[in-house]
Each structure stands twice: as C-alpha cells, then as structure tokens.
C-alpha cells in the first residue's frame, strides 16, 4: 500500500516536471519569485534587529534560525500541498473533483499529488540558507543526532502546516470559495517567525494549543540552541501526528458531505 502510493507519487512528480519543462521560463520565475518575496521581509527584519542588541533576549542569528525553521516547514506545505488552496474553484466548482472519486486511489492523495508546486522550492532554498547561515554564525555543532532532530522537526512542521490547511480547505465542500478561510488561519504562522516570548501569554498559548505553529519554529529552536528547551521541544512529531489524524477525520467528514450534496 505504502509502496504503491510512493511509486505513484514519483510517477505524478515526473509527469509534473515534464509539464514544467514545457514552460521552462515559468519554472524559473516561480522559483525566484518566492525568493524575492521572502527577501523583502527578511531585509526588513535584518535592518531592524541588527540595530538592537537582541530581541527579547534573542540575537539576530537566533531570530533568523527561528525564521528559517518556519520557512522550511512552510516550504514543505508549499511544495506538496499547494493544491489545497485551490480545491474549491479549481476542482469542486468545475466538477473535476468527481474524477478523483471514480479513480481507484485515495482522493486526497490524488488531489495533493496532482500538482507538485515548484514555487515552494524557492521557499525551501531560503529556509535552508537561513538555517545554514545562522548556524554557522552561532557556531552550532551539527551532530548526527542534532541533524536527525532537525529533519524530524522540519517534517513535523510541514505536516502541521498541511494539516491546518487541510482542515480549512475542507470548507470548500460547503462554501466552495475556501481560500479566505484558509488564508486567515494560514497567516497566523507569521506570529511564529519570532520568538514566542515577545507575545503575551494568551497568544503564546494560542500558538501552542489552538493553532500550533509554535511547534514548527520556536520550540524546536529552543532545543537546537539549547535555550531552556523543556518538554515542548520534543512534542513536534506528536503534535503533527495528532493534527494529521484530526485533519484527515475532518476531510473525511467533508467528503461525506460532498457525497450528500455534490455541490
């Protein structure tokens, strides 16, 4: 089962790249555009934080590490689950979603695999560059164990992003135009660009429990930097798992609604 889907995903991916190669210029632009957009925001943070000794006790490089972890997690969502944004007007309204339902594979898999989004590669590069540069400046030692931790938390962060988007995207089965809903929840990730300690307790709790983007950046960063990590730094994979299961339940519920209304 897993093998079948893995090999199918590869196949989808290869097809996707064949399409992208038909539009080579677009491919290149998509890749660089995300880098450009990130650059504007990053330049702003760099300009400001480099002028103060620290941000709530976090140095510029430490802040950039948090930012980098978040960007890596976001890029996973961007690359592998971008189709969740367009499920409403791209699939449900024009009726293309019906095609997924008459194919002998999981419709969610089909939806996600249908479009690998190469723009996310740009985000991935930015995130990776931030983590590398900041960890050099911070003289971090990457032991194999640390590296494993990094990989696990980045994937967990990606799953958290995807799961939250899946929950909001499911609303497309009711209201079709799900993008505004997704956008609102998605945008709360901007809080997690900075150390959560700059926010009041209520917001910290919000980003830990309700919309747990904190596990995609801040808590892992405390561990990597050895800054008083605590239990929460070990939770990202579990949070990701719980959220993934929950979001899939929500998706199935939405699918059932679709079966009832077919709108």
């Amino acid at each position: 089962m897993l093998r079948r889907y893995t090999s199918l995903y590869w196949f989808f991916l290869i097809q996707r790249f064949k399409i992208l190669m038909e539009y080579r210029l677009n491919f290149f632009i998509g890749l660089t555009s995300t880098i450009f957009l990130q650059a504007a925001g990053l330049l702003g943070i760099w300009v400001i934080v480099s002028q103060v000794p620290d941000l709530n006790g976090w140095t510029l490089d430490q802040v950039l590490l948090i930012y980098g972890l978040l960007t890596l997690a976001k890029s996973i969502n961007h690359m592998f689950a971008d189709n969740l944004w367009v499920i409403g007007w791209g699939y449900v309204r024009p009726g293309g979603f019906d095609r997924f339902l008459v194919r002998p594979i999981n419709p969610l898999f089909h939806l996600l695999a249908d479009r690998f989004c190469h723009d996310g590669l740009g985000n991935f590069l930015v995130g990776a560059a931030l983590v590398i540069v900041s960890s050099i400046n911070l003289h971090l030692v990457w032991t194999p164990l640390n590296l494993l931790y990094l990989i696990v938390v980045v994937i967990s962060g990606g799953v958290i992003f995807i799961a939250l988007n899946l929950i909001t995207a499911t609303s497309a089965f009711w209201i079709i135009e799900s993008i505004p809903v997704t956008q609102i929840v998605f945008n709360t990730h901007e809080f997690a660009r900075f150390p959560l300690t700059i926010y009041p307790k209520a917001i910290q709790l919000f980003l830990t429990i309700l919309i747990p983007y904190g596990f995609a950046s801040y808590y892992p960063a405390t561990q990597i930097l050895g800054r008083d990590p605590g239990l929460l730094a070990w939770l990202p994979p579990f949070v990701a798992l719980v959220l993934a299961v929950f979001s899939y339940r929500v998706w199935l519920f939405g699918l059932k609604h679709y079966g009832g209304t077919g709108s």
Binding site: L8, F11, Q15, K18, I19, E22, P94, D98, R99, P104
Partner: peptide, 26 residues
C-alpha cells in the same frame, strides 16, 4: 466514466503520457 464536458487527460502532455498514467493508477 466519461464526463463529456470535462477531460481527464493532461492538457500539456502528449496523450501517451496520460495513458501511461492511467495504467499506473489502475
């Protein structure tokens, strides 16, 4: 199933690619 108004084929790729893809899925 054929939905007369909607295609299941990949717009940008040669027909044979879509057929290969269907072979994999089924």
């Amino acid at each position: 199933v054929v939905f007369g108004q909607r295609s299941q084929l990949w717009w940008d790729l040669p027909l044979i690619e879509s057929l290969n893809f269907i072979q994999r899925i089924y």
